[in-house]
Computed example of a mutant assay.
Amino acid sequence: MNIVYIGFNEKGERWTASAGQYFWIGQMAPRGFRKALSFFSGWMLVLSWQLFVTAGVMIIGNGVAALVMLHTGTNYTWLPTVLSSVTAVLIYIVNRWAFPLLAKLEFIFLMYQVVAFVILTLVLLLLKRGSGLRYATAYDVFLNFDNSSGWRTPAAVLLTALVPLSSGVGYDCAFHMGKYTMMDD
């Protein structure tokens, strides 16, 4: 995603308006398509932001529920919903009242994520090695599509476009702030 962020930085330097990707698309698109592309990209970014936030909360709830099921052997169908709701409330509480601690704990969070990523990667690689399953080929990864969602293919494509779009949500503001901070020096 560094390429996306470098692109945001370049656009933020050229157009220092307090706007987002929809503004930049409106500036760079051909004249006949500016309004439509800007409108469409703005709404896709709104939807991807909602998806990004909701998916994060649901991943936490489902992950903890899976650990509970793995430990107890009982599948509580209501548990992911309850844990997702509790997670959303906790996120609100931390961001509302404990935000001074977040800056102090940032390095600890970073180290935790790096260690967890390394451990998870090693576990997955070791599980794969012992499973006897074949590795995916480049054809499987890039050209083999399986639409088992029940959605028609065009709708499924639009839904899956929201996931990579969510990686660009909110990062443009960091470049705007960086630009304005550098201008003050």
Rank of each mutant, 00 (worst) to 15 (best):
M44F: 06
L45W: 07
L47C: 03
S48W: 02
Q50I: 10
V53H: 00
V53R: 02
T54Y: 11
T54L: 01
M58L: 15
N62A: 04
G63Q: 01
A65Y: 04
L70Q: 05
N75Q: 07
T77D: 10
T81S: 15
V82K: 02
S85G: 09
A88V: 01
V89F: 03
V94C: 01
K104S: 05
I108C: 08
I108D: 13
L110Q: 10
L110M: 11
L110R: 14
M111I: 09
Y112V: 01
Q113I: 08
V114Y: 09
A116M: 14
V118E: 12
T121Y: 13
L122M: 10
L122R: 12
V123P: 01
V123R: 05
K128T: 00
R129N: 14
R129Y: 10
G130F: 02
L133R: 08
A136G: 12
Y139N: 04
F142W: 14
L143K: 10
N144V: 06
F145C: 05
N147V: 10
W151D: 07
P154L: 08
V157G: 03
L162M: 08
P164F: 06
S166K: 03
S166T: 08
S166N: 12
S167A: 08
Y171Q: 13
D172H: 02
D172F: 00
C173R: 10
C173K: 09
A174I: 01
M177Q: 03
M177T: 01
K179Q: 12
T181E: 13
T181W: 12
M182I: 14
